[in-house]
Each structure stands twice: as structure tokens, then as C-alpha cells.
Design a protein around this nucleic acid. Structure first.
Lengths: 272, 272
DNA sequence: CAGTGGTCTAGACCACATG
DNA sequence: ATGTGGTCTAGACCACTGG
């Protein structure tokens, strides 16, 4: 039995202004045109997944638009709400949809693959118009390093370090989150130089470091923690790529230790 | 209401040989000791996930053992079968469990992280006892390259190539699957040299290539396809890491193009 | 055949965000 | 207060595997 509001809409086609959201978008009609093949090789929820994915990739429920509610869509597709949710949960994990409790489900921007070339600065790094990209500084301050960081930076664990958390965005959409740690003794003017342009390169140059390279990058996989998911606009348990890199100056002295977290489906790393 | 066989076991503790599988293992008792906190911040299925994961990481349901059936465990935990399945499905995606329809659910070997250093041969590459590792050749033969491979190998798309599919195993457990393509003209004696030791390095040396390096490695993320999942003993949609690498000889001429697929949770790549 | 995991539905309640 | 997504249960049927 479909929810009553859907039924009343159908029964009263004249009041088209009654509720805007209730109007079924064109893509929904085409999604629900053919019935699903029951008892086929491919489960119904996977068929739903296929259709949504193809549609989103074709760009019809465009980036950012809110989908109608679960009940409405489930009724339109003539499947149970839970079956629909199963398909959606996979679409969320794979980066096509993002859900906010109490609000709705939204189409994420296309999970474009960003080709990131290691051993270069970020903007030289990424395919696409540089103006589309932005940095958001989440936090900047002094602390003590954790043991691994102290080890990598070859400093005493009780030494002071600058800790910088930031995010890269493309078209308002988070691409990755990173935590960078620098030896404070080496960069006394960190905050004042960093503030104007949010540029770590500027800080390096202001302290006499002209050339720097990543000496080692560790890539591992995992699943987004609660805070990572919140920052990156993902559901928890979304698979992510984690990178841990050490940056050294021209003399091979470590000057930065950084940990990055990337939604698995949105990045492609190239090492040369 | 628990299944009847469980109830009868409890009522008849003397017949310990009645059915071996029905005996509840110790870890199950400890998992089901405390009731789950309802309406807490953490959903019940996530609490189940937590307990199983901790237990498996502690090694009690040890690698390879078959778990009792869903119905039995759900009854023991006093939750619905579907709630239990939700927890299990995440454990499967994360590599802790693997299910075989009609057979049962098994504990996978610990998703140990294999540190793989690029630019080296595999056995020099990996932490752990080399004797634990094995290669299984899945297929070896001549074909035509796909466009991307032809491009990377800088050969004509109609040229003949040697195509080799194989898998790495550690302790019988698949670590990764790879497809390697070589220009046949360069390695006419590929099959006869490869066969005895399953060594690509031997083939290279037999054809006068003493030194070779990876010139470029692309790392991207994705989800296991059906055949990848089957080979790697994963459920489909498990997140994987894909690597695409080109190997060149001492003169910079491409001699191999390889595509690898690694379960996300089982590998750690290091680039230096 | 019996047992296993896999799918699907129905209906209920909850927490959250918004008006 | 309403609508949203999130969780949980109950019960049913299916497909696969093995003895």
C-alpha cells in the first residue's frame, strides 16, 4: 500500500502547486518505467543500484539536487523502502549520494578522478581549472607531536610543532582532508606567513627553503571515521585512501609530516 | 523464539556428541554475554560489528574457522537475523569474514598489511617470511593488446603480446591478482622460460634484460568486480586498490604493462 | 534432503532537522 | 508538528551446497 500522500496527489492532478516536492521528476519516471525482473540473476536492489548509477552518471539527477523522499521513490519503483535503501547505501559508499538525517538525500558531485602527481605542489598536480579549487584551513596551532610524527621529523617528542589541518575543495565539494605537522623551531613565523594566502609553500620560502620534495609516501586503505566522514561529506564506513608522506628540504632534512584522507572513489594517485 | 535445535541442546547437556556444530563456541558465549544497549548512540548492528571485529582481531574465532549459522548466532545474541547480517556484511566488506552461499561464513585470515615497496621485485618487497608466499598462474597466452596497453608499451595495437594472469597468495590466502602484458616480439621464449619457476624476472634475464624499473605507477580505488571477488575470495563490492604500472628496461623501453587488484584492507604501498 | 546464506516485504519506532 | 533518513523485527521465499 503506497503512502497516502502519493495517492492523494495522483487523485488530484489539478492542484499542481499543492506541494512542489511531490511532482515526480522526469528521471524518476524513466527509472520506474520498466518493472524489475524478479528472481533474475541480478537482485532487485542491484537493478535499482544500476539504474540510479547510470542516471546519475548521465547527469540527469544533477549534482546537488535533492531526491524525493524514500517513501515516494519506493512507491514509484514499486519496491519496499528497505530494498531501495539497500541500493542507496551502496550508492552512498561509492560516492554517488549523500544523505543527511532529517533533511534528505542529495546527489553528490560526480566522483571525478583527480589525478594527483606526487612530488609536486598541489595546484600543479591536479587536472582541471585551478580556479575551481579552494583550501579551507580547519585549524592551526602549536602542540606536541605524536611518536610517529616525532620520529619521522627526527625531533624530540617534547619539541613544539605547528599542526595544520585543512581541506581541499573543488566546486565546494571536499576532495580530501589533511593534517600537516612542521617543526616549530624551523618555522618561527609560520602563522603570520601562512595566514594571508593559506600557502605552505610561502612559509617554506619565507624561511629559506627553496626546494622541497616528498621523500616517502605510504598509501593505505581504510574506512572513514566519524569525523572524517563529517568533514568530507560522506557516510561513515565509506572507503578511503590514506596517505602518509614526509617532505624534506634540499639537504634531506624533514620539514613536514602529513597525513591525508581521500574518498576512495575521487582520487587517482600517480607516482613516477 | 530461538530455533528448536538450540533449545534442545540446552535442555539436554548430556548428548554432547549429538551435533558438533551446535555446540556454542566459547567466543560466542562471551560475545553474547552482555546485552546490547538499545537506543544508544551506537546502533545495535554496529555494537555487534564491534564485538565481532574485536574478537576476530584478538584471534579467538581464528582464521579459517566456520561460524555457526546465522539463525543460531542471532538467537544467541538475541537480535534479529537481519540485524546480525548487517554487521556481518560490513565485516565482509572490510575483509574479516567471507561467506559462501549454501556453505557458511568463515573467518578470513587476518587482514595483515603487506608493505609493498615499489621499484623492487615482489619478494624483496614484502614484510614477512618469503616462504609463506606463493604464486599461482591463472592463465598465460598470446593475444592482442587493448588500446591503453598498446599505448603504454608503445607497440602497434595489432602486435602480438604475451598475457599473463596470476595471483599472489600468502598462507593460501589471496593477496592480489595481476594481469601482466609483455610485447611478444621482445620475449619470444617467454613461455618456456616462465614455466619452470613462474618467474618473470627469469624471463627478462633470459632475454638480456638485466635491470628493469617501474617507470610510473597509477593507484586508484574501486570495488571488486564479480570475477575479482571470486578470485580474491571477497564479496563483490568489496573496496579494492587498483594499480597500473609500466616497467621499462635500462634504456627506458617499456617491457611490461601490469594491472593489479588488491583488497583495500590488505595492503600498504610505499613509494620512495 | 536439510541446512546454509541471500533477498524481499510489511510494519513499527526512533532521532533529527525544519518550518 | 511534520517529514526526513536510520534502525529493528517478524516472517516469508529463494538459490545454492553438501551429504
Amino acid at each position: 500500500m503506497p503512502p497516502t500522500d502519493t495517492a492523494s496527489d495522483a487523485a488530484d492532478p489539478c492542484s499542481i502547486t499543492a506541494r512542489v516536492r511531490a511532482a515526480e521528476p522526469a528521471w524518476l519516471n524513466s527509472l520506474s518505467a520498466d518493472p524489475f525482473v524478479e528472481r533474475s540473476k541480478r537482485a532487485i536492489w542491484l537493478q535499482i543500484y544500476d539504474r540510479f548509477r547510470r542516471s546519475i552518471e548521465a547527469g540527469d539527477p544533477g549534482a546537488g539536487v535533492q531526491l524525493p523522499g524514500e517513501h515516494q521513490i519506493a512507491a514509484a519503483l514499486k519496491v519496499n523502502r528497505i530494498t531501495l535503501r539497500r541500493a542507496w547505501s551502496r550508492l552512498q559508499r561509492e560516492g554517488y549520494l549523500s544523505a543527511r538525517k532529517g533533511v534528505g538525500v542529495f546527489v553528490r558531485r560526480q566522483p571525478t578522478l583527480y589525478t594527483v602527481t606526487e612530488n609536486r605542489g598541489f595546484l600543479a598536480n591536479v587536472d582541471g581549472d585551478p580556479r575551481e579549487f579552494a583550501v579551507r584551513t580547519l585549524s592551526l596551532g602549536l602542540t606536541q607531536p605524536d611518536p610517529e610524527t616525532a620520529d619521522q621529523l627526527r625531533i624530540d617528542p617534547s619539541a613544539t610543532v605547528v599542526r595544520l589541518e585543512r581541506m581541499r575543495l573543488r566546486l565546494e565539494q571536499p576532495i580530501y582532508r589533511t593534517e600537516k605537522v612542521f617543526p616549530a623551531a624551523r618555522f618561527p613565523r609560520f602563522e603570520e606567513v601562512y595566514a594571508p594566502g593559506s600557502s605552505v609553500g610561502a612559509v617554506f620560502r619565507a624561511h629559506g627553503v627553496e626546494r622541497f620534495t616528498r621523500s616517502r609516501t605510504r598509501v593505505s586503505g581504510g574506512f572513514a571515521t566519524g569525523s572524517e566522514a563529517a568533514d568530507l561529506d560522506l557516510t561513515p564506513t565509506t572507503p578511503v585512501l590514506r596517505t602518509v608522506a614526509t617532505v624534506v628540504d634540499e639537504n634531506g632534512i624533514p620539514i613536514e609530516h602529513s597525513r591525508g584522507c581521500w574518498p576512495l572513489t575521487m582520487v587517482e594517485l600517480i607516482f613516477e
